[in-house]
Amino acid sequence: MSTTSLDLREDILRLKKERNAVILAHNYQTGDIQDIADYVGDSLGLAYRAQETDADVIAFCGVHFMAETAKIVNPNKTVVLPDKDAGCSLEESCPADELEKYLNDNKEKNYYVIAYINCSAGVKALCDVICTSGNAVKIVNKAPADRPILFVPDANLGAWVMEQTGRKMDLWQGACYVHVEFTRESINKIKSEYPDALVVAHPECTTAVRLLADEVCSTEKMIAFCQNAPVKNIIVVTESGMLHRLQKEAPDKNLIAGPTDRCACNDCHFMKMNTMQKLHDCLEKLEPQVELPEDIRKRAEAPLLKMLEQSK
Rank of each mutant, 00 (worst) to 15 (best):
K109F: 00
V137T: 15
M162H: 10
I296A: 11
D170T: 15
F65T: 01
E239F: 03
A159P: 01
I223Q: 06
A121I: 01
V140Q: 10
N228K: 13
T30E: 15
V73K: 10
A136Q: 08
L211H: 14
P95Y: 00
V40Y: 04
C176V: 00
Q173V: 00
V237S: 02
P251M: 10
E163T: 14
Y48R: 14
Y177R: 12
D252Y: 00
V216A: 03
N118H: 12
E284A: 15
C263N: 07
F60D: 07
V161Y: 04
M66I: 10
C94V: 13
K312G: 06
T183R: 01
P259T: 08
A155D: 11
D38A: 05
C88R: 07
A257M: 04
T275V: 02
S120A: 05
I223V: 15
T183H: 02
T30Q: 15
E287A: 15
G45T: 03
H202C: 03
K278H: 09
A145S: 13
L305W: 04
A86E: 09
P82C: 12
K16H: 05
A159T: 10
A37M: 06
K142L: 12
S89L: 09
D56T: 12
K232M: 09
D83G: 01
R147W: 05
D146V: 00
I235D: 03
P75F: 08
K101Q: 07
G45F: 04
V216N: 02
A50P: 03
C265R: 14
E52D: 05
Y177I: 05
F182M: 01
H179G: 05
D42V: 02
E18M: 11
K109A: 06
V80M: 08
G62S: 13
R167K: 09
I36S: 08
V161I: 12
T4M: 11
A175P: 00
W172R: 06
D54N: 15
V129T: 11
S120T: 09
I12A: 10
K232N: 11
T275L: 01
T260W: 06
